[in-house]
């Protein structure tokens, strides 16, 4: 087991998030969005990527921050969790950084609001604070 964890870092609003490269499939542009009535937990709809359906998550929705619907063509990070795909809306995809696993700390209480359930920890990169996502926490069961 390696001690370093490569993370794909992206920005949503004023927060930076990281998703382990191992859980990531691709970066794509979101197509038509189809809303799902009654779907909770930050899901803003379904989209189809090359014929494959996947739910689209907006982390701002999860945080209760007001936000416009993503424009067609907005960038999404597509991750895979137990055979299912999830697309996460981003404002900007910045880079891949490698952080030592030991440097990922649990989320301090003051940031719990920004973190919500799907964040597994926070990595410090100089002045930057990157919330590390755990995609399996997006599952509803």
């Amino acid at each position: 087991m390696s001690k370093a964890e490569p993370l794909l870092v992206f920005r949503v609003g004023s927060y930076e998030y990281g998703i382990p490269v191992a859980e990531m499939r691709e970066i794509a542009r979101v197509g038509e969005l189809r809303s799902i009535p009654g779907a909770a937990g930050g899901i803003i709809g379904f989209t189809a990527l090359r014929g494959r359906l996947m739910p689209v998550f907006d982390l701002r929705e999860r945080l209760g921050v007001p936000h416009p619907a993503p424009a067609k063509g907005a960038r999404v990070v597509v991750g895979s969790v137990r055979g299912e795909l999830a697309a996460i809306v981003t404002d900007e995809v910045s880079e891949v950084v490698t952080v030592p696993k030991s440097s990922i700390e649990s989320v301090p209480a003051m940031w719990a609001g920004a973190a919500s359930n799907e964040v597994r920890g926070v990595a410090h990169l100089g002045e930057r604070r990157i919330f590390v996502l755990a995609l399996n926490r997006l599952l509803k069961d």
Partner: peptide
Amino acid sequence: RLVGPVDGVAGAAV
């Protein structure tokens, strides 16, 4: 399992 059950909707299709 990412969306979970939605009352009245059983699936989706492209």
